[in-house]
Design a protein around this nucleic acid. Structure first.
Length: 191
DNA sequence: AGTTGGATGGTCT
DNA sequence: GACCATCCAACTG
């Protein structure tokens, strides 16, 4: 069982949000964004990384929260193995597995899922999980409430990453939400 | 510490 | 055919 704490997310809206996958209305890729909330929307970026969203709007309205970073709590060895499997699969042609293994061996635990593509790799999330109910206790991936003993969150916000193409105001809205106390955040905050 | 370019394939114009 | 909600190695300072 792999368990982690979500420490960084980004909010994405419907067709009005020019940075959102929903910006052109419903398509084959984004249709789960338009469905009921609490469901996984999994997409592939740059031809190789699968990323996890939680659908967050009411049924019929497109909205989702991209999970950008997770702080590992349990199942770290499984996460490492999954990271290796993912990297090896992707680099099957050009690299030998030994280099990837050595690189991963020196990677700090806190960095195992410190990025949206890395969350997908560490938790073995792929597009087959698109549409699953994250609130179903029997689902392969689940969303749980925060635990009483969780560290206190230090809330920070910043513009979303990688959406400059959307133009203002969408590229500048502070819709990237981070726990500033976590060592697992994907990138340092601006400023 | 910051910048650049390659890998790679689906999606939309 | 251009673009992309990324990651990493290899550079520069």
């Amino acid at each position: 069982l792999r368990i982690g704490r979500i420490v960084e997310v980004e909010a994405y809206g419907g067709p009005e949000d020019r940075a959102s996958h929903a910006r052109s209305g419903p398509t084959a890729r984004n249709r789960t964004m338009f469905g009921p909330p609490g469901v996984a929307y999994v997409y592939r970026v740059y031809g190789m990384h699968d990323c996890l969203n939680v659908v967050s709007g009411p049924d019929g309205a497109a909205a989702a929260v991209l999970v950008r970073a997770v702080e590992p709590i349990a199942g770290l060895e499984a996460m490492r193995a999954a990271r290796l499997a993912s990297a090896t699969r992707r680099a099957a042609v050009r690299v030998d597995g030994g280099a990837e293994r050595r690189r991963l061996a020196s990677l700090p635990d806190a960095r195992l899922a410190a990025g949206p593509g890395l969350v997908g790799a560490a938790f073995s999330i792929d597009r087959e999980l698109d549409g699953i109910d994250l609130l179903d206790p029997s689902a392969p991936i689940r969303l749980d409430p925060a635990r009483p003993d969780d560290r206190e969150v230090v809330p920070r916000s910043a513009p979303r990453i990688g959406v400059a193409y959307a133009g203002r105001p969408w590229s500048a809205l502070p819709w990237r939400l981070v726990d500033g106390s976590s060592p697992s955040v994907s990138r340092r905050l601006p400023g």
